[in-house]
Nucleic acid binder design. Structure first.
Length: 439
RNA sequence: GUGGGUGUAGCUCAGUUGGUUAGAGCGCCAGAUUGUGGAUCUGGAUGUCGGGGGUUCAAGUCCCCUCACUCACCCCA
């Protein structure tokens, strides 16, 4: 009896067509993080359950993959990279010193129901700064998100920002301080369920219609980012928390603008709150203009108390996380993924088997020049080999037989253009480079 | 986790009120074409109808269970 080959719900295989762009995105993300001075770290997939529970709220506890290991230890798979980082920081901050900036990329697991762009195993690319409450770090996160998205080839996106202090202050002022979580969760759905929907949910949670309306009025203030801030300040600037939140947001907008980023990229959105309980200040979400329904592809915020669960030392932090698999799902849907199943751009046609040695010699020469070359393994008909090359997404093919070797030349074929030119043996690499440069 | 939808060839799908050997397009393979792939022609292979069980003389079609995908809720990357 054969075992049926299959994967678990929410867990996936990654064929070359997914893995090649995936590795490309990871490489670009890595370069961006490093360019800002974030240093790489990694932490285990498995942690003591007590490290992870109670950090993201009830919901993330429910979603935890949790079990007893062979030593009867209560363990769980990480559901994000931020909580393990807080544990790591608490353990090692003495050696690391502050401020400390790190990036980490790896899989996380959440046992929730699947949906488009939503899996039970997915990769996050996290970047965080800990050890400082300086708003400069909050602002830098916006710059990183922006440059990250651009480096990944995305132009049409918008970074939504908010600050929990603004919301917390507002809630205090309208008498909802005790219902912060309920109120924020309801408010978070504004874009989805509309004003009446939010009011209804607030009503269920015991919030009076008057307070609910007040909250919504504020969350729905229209205008430019600056106008919204001015409006909030006028009405609630007297509250210390709100005032501080506004100050930070205003500085953020100003610095980002001065740093040369288009205002239209940033959207002050008082309605976003984020479900994770550990956020305390600035909040970020990033949406694709062409596919907003897939959700935020890069989110995060400031968490000033997270590491406090593991150490008495004050370790505030701020950061965000790129949802790699969700982003790839979006790119796939937007047909922005190249249909390439080969990581090497050049196919060496095995035209006449007796010249295999010469083919391999040329392939090695090119590889030494940094050009990826695959030598076709069988001396099949040239047409068949070219067809293989096109199907896999090779850019160029090299062809040579007795005639060419006699003259000391190679035929270099551009697969897409179906154009062929003859190149002297010593100039093959030079001829290939410009042909590959054009995207 | 809750509720709705879907699941037929590699892909996109058709398949009438249950009724013989389950179809189309595209793709794939071989040949026409033993130094060159987008065309044409000829020939060819395609499937446990997601899986299991049941009703029936008879199930792709009806019922139950299960798995996966998908949408909504919830939550989130």
């Amino acid at each position: 009896m054969l075992i049926q080959p299959r994967t678990l719900k929410g867990f996936r295989d990654y064929p070359p067509a997914l893995m090649i762009p995936r590795e490309g995105l990871l490489e670009k993300a890595r370069r961006t993080f490093r360019s800002y001075g974030f240093a790489p770290i990694d932490t285990p997939a498995l942690e003591y359950a007590e490290i992870l529970t109670g950090k993201g709220g009830d919901e993330s506890d429910k979603q935890l993959y949790r079990f007893k290991d062979h030593g009867d230890r209560d363990v769980a798979l990480r559901f994000d990279l931020t909580v393990p980082f807080a544990r790591f920081a608490a353990e090692n901050i003495g050696q690391l010193g502050t401020p400390f900036k790190r990036y980490a990329m790896g899989p996380v697991w959440r046992g929730e129901n699947t949906q488009r762009g939503r899996y039970r195993e997915f990769w996050q690319c996290d970047f965080d700064t800990i050890g400082t409450t300086s708003n400069a770090s909050d602002i830098e996160i916006v710059l990183v998100i922006h440059d990250l998205m651009r480096s990944l080839g995305l132009e049409r996106f918008r970074i939504h920002v908010n600050n929990r202090m603004v919301l917390n202050g507002l809630l205090e002022e309208i008498g909802l301080a005790g219902k912060t979580t309920d109120a924020l969760r309801a408010l978070d759905k504004l874009a989805k369920v509309g004003r009446d929907g939010v009011l209804a949910e607030l009503g269920e949670k015991g919030v009076a219609a008057e307070a609910g309306n007040k909250l919504l009025d504020l969350a729905q203030v229209q205008g430019t980012n600056d106008e919204i801030l001015a409006h909030l300040e006028r009405d609630f600037g007297g509250n210390a928390k709100t005032a501080e939140g506004i100050r930070r947001l205003r500085e953020l907008l100003g610095v980002v603008r001065t740093a040369g980023i288009d205002d239209a990229r940033l959207r002050l959105d008082v309605a976003i709150a984020r479900g994770l309980d550990y956020y305390t200040g600035t909040i970020y979400e990033t949406f694709l203009d062409d596919l907003p329904t897939i959700g935020s592809v890069c989110s995060g915020g400031r968490y000033d108390n997270l590491a406090g669960l593991y150490t008495k030392q004050q370790l505030p932090g701020v950061g965000a996380s790129l949802g790699l698999d969700r982003l790839i799902a979006a790119l796939e849907e937007l047909k922005m993924l190249p249909n390439v199943a080969t990581p090497a751009p050049v196919l060496m046609v095995q035209f006449q088997a007796e010249y295999l040695g010469r083919y391999q010699a040329m392939a090695r020469t090119l590889r030494a020049e940094g050009i990826g070359v695959e030598v076709y393994p069988e001396p099949k008909k040239i047409g068949a080999q070219l067809q293989y090359a096109e199907k896999r997404g090779f850019r160029l093919a090299l062809i040579a037989g007795a005639e060419e070797f006699e003259k000391g030349v190679w035929k270099l074929k551009n697969l897409a253009a179906r154009e062929e030119k003859t190149v002297a043996a010593g100039e093959v690499a030079d001829a290939i480079r410009p042909a590959l440069a054009g995207g």
